[in-house]
Design a protein around this nucleic acid. Structure first.
Length: 115
RNA sequence: ACAGUAAACCGGUUUAUCGCGCCGCAAGGUGAGGAAAGUCCGGGCAGCACAGAGCACCGCAGCGGUUAACGGCCGUCAGGCAGCAAUGUUUGGUCCCUGCUACAGAGACGAGUGAUGUGAAACGAGCAUACUGCGGGCUGCAAUUCCAAGUAAACCAACGUAUGAGCGCUGCUCGCGUGAGUUGGAGGGUAGGAAGCGAGAGAGAAGCAUGGUAACAUGCUUUCCGAGAUUAAUGAUAAACGCUGCUUCGGCAGUACAGAACCCGGCUUAUAGGUUUGCUGUCUUC
């Protein structure tokens, strides 16, 4: 598993997303709220920065990009199984890449461990 | 030189590592802004509607020009306000008809008169909801078209079937058209894909020429430019340089506003720092 993050590894489709949020397991790795479930075919990831917390599109874009990079660089922490994972940003402040990367690492380790 | 004022423009750069969208068999190519923003005007484009008449309603308003169009832009006139000035800012159709003009005043548009007094205004008028001129069908790309999949032409209630329900025509009236359903309740299904969507007869850009005070128009030239996502690409990390402050000359701090979503022309708002030009005032030197 390399560092890539192509489009087929992104979770999309409103029905699947709604079902995933209903059934997935949740925990918090500040400043992220993580939802995850086992998947059959491929690991798919959803990244979300809410408009209610960040008014400007450029802030949301920036946070999404930081979370995406953090996942992309640390996805090797997962084992060989496949998952659906959602990272929801939940803090009111824009945190740095170092903080977000640490949170993503913690979350991925926890998912791999619980599995 | 300093201060002011009015315009125009720029909006970081480089390297390393990892990565994303679109196009392409591949090699490779290409990928945010001056405001992409607010969605306030105008136009293209799309769908629906459109026999006609009247009354409403909304927008604009010195004058002239410009444009695809505009409430924009350019030029210009008059009054008020700020400033020594350059300049900025603000107001600007009309009173024939309809109506309004508080308090005060004998009287407020009604007249027998109208000096004094009252009052913003005393027969003179001012104003808009009135009148005049011009413009306006409605809805917006979540438009619209196609493909695929799926469901419930079932149930309940009200009104109606030529004694005409309802619908459409602009909000209303007339009038016209249509002619058996319509409305509400409860419930069921879908929310995938493609086109629209960006190289087109471009309201593009740059340069030159001609006309015009200007906005702008016309013509010629060009190895000039060309995002197209859809849980939504255009990035992340590290370093160096540049720029701006402060400095004990070692350095330290800061480097804005902000992210396309059908496309254009404007307006408005946000913006670190910087560049250029015109004009005005003050001072100095020749």
């Amino acid at each position: 598993m390399g560092y890539g993050f192509p489009k087929q590894n992104k979770l999309c489709g409103s029905l699947r997303i709604a079902q995933f949020y209903r059934e997935g397991k949740r925990f918090v790795a500040w400043p992220l709220r993580v939802t995850w479930a086992k998947a059959d075919n491929e690991t798919q990831v959803l990244i979300w920065a809410p408009k209610s917390l960040f008014k400007h599109a450029i802030q949301r874009n920036h946070l999404r990009r930081l979370m995406r990079e953090a996942y992309r660089l640390n996805q090797a922490l997962l084992d060989d199984a496949h998952y659906q994972i959602a990272f929801n940003y939940m803090d009111k402040e824009e945190q740095s890449f170092a903080v977000i990367e640490k949170a993503v690492q913690k979350a991925l380790k926890k998912i791999a461990h619980e599995q």
